[in-house]
Amino acid sequence: MKKSSLRDLGSACFFLAPAFFLYITFVIYPTLDLFRFSFTSWDGVSPVKQWVGIRNYQELFSDRIFWQAFRNTLLWAGIVLLLNVFVALVLAALIAEPIRGRVGFQLAYFLPAVQAGVVTATIWRWMYQPNGVINVFLRTIGLGRFARGWLGDFTLALPALAVASSWMSMGVNIAIFLGGIQNIDPTLYEAAKIDGANRFQLFRYITVPSLYHTIVIVLILSTIGAFKTFDIVWATTQGGPVRATELLATYTYKKGMLEARYGYGSSIAVFLMLLIVLLSAFYFFQQKREA
């Protein structure tokens, strides 16, 4: 180490102390604790934390509800990806056209993005009710046979909530894509237009390939977001009907907090965290390649 590298040590400690005190106490330490708890049969209160080795993980992998929560989470991610990557990209491309009223459209897309999960849940729960706006609308246009209590429907509750969740997050992705599109060299488009390319061809052969890395990043971010989802499900179906909307996050909460199976709940949380770390590592790799 050069002598000068020690010069600022004192002030560095002063500037970093508050941040790292909080970070180590309330993020790093709990993370280590989480792994430790996952090897115990602790109930969350008793003074003894009985070490049980990998028994929680053995139970986890033979727990059919856990696997259903995992499948549900993947299905949830799939629906969110379809809307928040594919649809968001198309909308971003359209909004980037030389149009009037761009500010108004952007406002409509982005305003849901500042809403709380509970607000989104409250709004959509009402819209999905048997006499809610969606069913009233279906009856009005003569499609009354499709009307139903959406969130009580075993097959449709999960897609219905995933759509509500996408409503909330789509605006951010549109903004990310729009930023990317505005950075594409305009001469590419001009050259292609001279060659007679239509709007679809410009999108397919210039916009999409130019945004390749952005698309991958949004894909990963949306998947991570799906894995973390809790609020919107907890405020509506709480995982029901039966287990139709059980996600990894709601299942962790139920087992760990509500059923006081702290150790077992921790093993689900470890699984969830490892998935997210894996995806994040992939994200950083992509970002590095883009940079």
Partner: peptide, 24 residues
């Protein structure tokens, strides 16, 4: 090293950390 430690925290999802956070 501190930067690397911070990157780890970017990934920590609150839904997974809530149980140990409660005991802390």
């Amino acid at each position: 090293a501190l930067l690397v430690i911070l990157i780890l925290g970017l990934m920590a999802p609150v839904t997974a950390l809530i149980l140990p956070l409660y005991t802390v």
